[in-house]
Design a protein around this nucleic acid. Structure first.
Lengths: 193, 193
DNA sequence: GTAATTTCTTAACATAGTTTAAGGGTAAAA
DNA sequence: TTTTACCCTTAAACTATGTTAAGAAATTAC
């Protein structure tokens, strides 16, 4: 039962009581998503906060030359949302796309605010979830400035072993901020050494 | 009265009632900080969440070669903290240093948790504050990947006019992820054009 | 199972940004 | 006010990474 997974997820933070569980699960929508299906498109407003039960997603921006830049991946038991668009309910500059057939649980902006306003524990839990994501993002930015592409690739493999072997190198290159050709060169040098 | 500034700051989120104001202000410590004074050092645990009443700070990491990489600046009415270290109460990898003589209001980790546990509104307000910071950081990362140093400099000047004219170019270059020499070249080309 | 599409690799060439070094300018400290 | 420390700029040589193109390999779709 997919909705149990999200309950278990919250046990890592402040566990929900029966009433809160009921309030949450009754507001979750389960969706099956096909590979390459886009669940958020540039220009649209991000209406849902999504919890990945199964599968994997990427969130990316597209630059003036049409190139994609991956901001994040989300696999099992992770959240995926354009917080900027969701939080302010304004058009997004990003895309969210499934890289595998996936199952997600979605909660709408309106319903999440209902939970925030009636059960303060959700403010707490999402505060902590966001803080953790902020820490990750800040570490990544620091690495981008202070380490070579080679070192960033090594870190990525160490930090996300479960995700890295499910993604095309093209996608990893985009996440690292380099071209696939250059990643290929890095991989060749790794093996040779 | 510095403590009034922080109350006004919260009015932009969910305004505090009298009891909450009292609970907050009684837990704030006012500090005067000298230019170049370091309020968080690598290896130390970040014990305080700091609100800048006056002045300006930088937060940075130092790489293996001893080079500084600025992650963020904070001036009046902004918060400065190493969330990673503060949140998990583990040694920080970062420094926080005043770039001007400053006045800050600090709240300790313990006291902030007291507020979180007794007044849920603080969970709400800090959730929203962190979300805003997350959005900023994510935009910056996307820009770092998709725009040239020249364009990033222009954006920085537009986005932070109040900070940019108070900082040495060395500091701005570090924030943009380039060398001061290259920023100098960018500035020369800007003027010529 | 086969065709179609995408991904991976290689290599030659191009470039944004770095390094080093040095001189002059500016703001902080005493 | 004077000294000191730091900051800014220039320029030439250098390096990490990007670009283009093209064939081989792998994965996905039919």
């Amino acid at each position: 039962m997919p909705k149990n997974k999200i309950i278990t997820h919250f046990d890592e933070y402040l566990p929900l009581d029966e009433q809160e569980k009921k309030a949450l699960t009754s507001r979750l929508t389960e969706c099956k998503i096909k590979r390459k299906q886009i669940i958020l498109q540039e220009g649209d407003t991000c209406k849902n906060f999504s919890y990945v039960v199964e599968g994997c997603f990427k969130m990316y921006g597209v630059d003036q030359l049409g190139k994609e830049h991956n901001l994040s991946f989300a696999a099992e038991d992770d959240w995926i949302v354009d917080i900027g668009s969701f939080h302010k309910q304004k058009p997004s500059k990003l895309f969210i796309e499934a890289v595998e057939p996936s199952v997600i649980l979605q909660i709408s902006n309106k319903d999440l605010w209902y939970l925030y306003n009636h059960y303060p524990k959700f403010d707490r839990n999402f505060r902590v979830i966001i803080e953790d994501k902020y820490i990750e993002l800040q570490n990544r930015l620091l690495q981008t400035f202070s380490a070579s592409a080679h070192d960033r690739y090594e870190s990525f493999l160490e930090q996300y072993p479960n995700i890295s072997n499910r993604l095309a190198n093209t996608q990893i290159a985009s996440y690292l901020g380099i071209t696939p050709e250059f990643l290929s060169k890095i991989r060749r040098d790794r093996v040779r050494k």
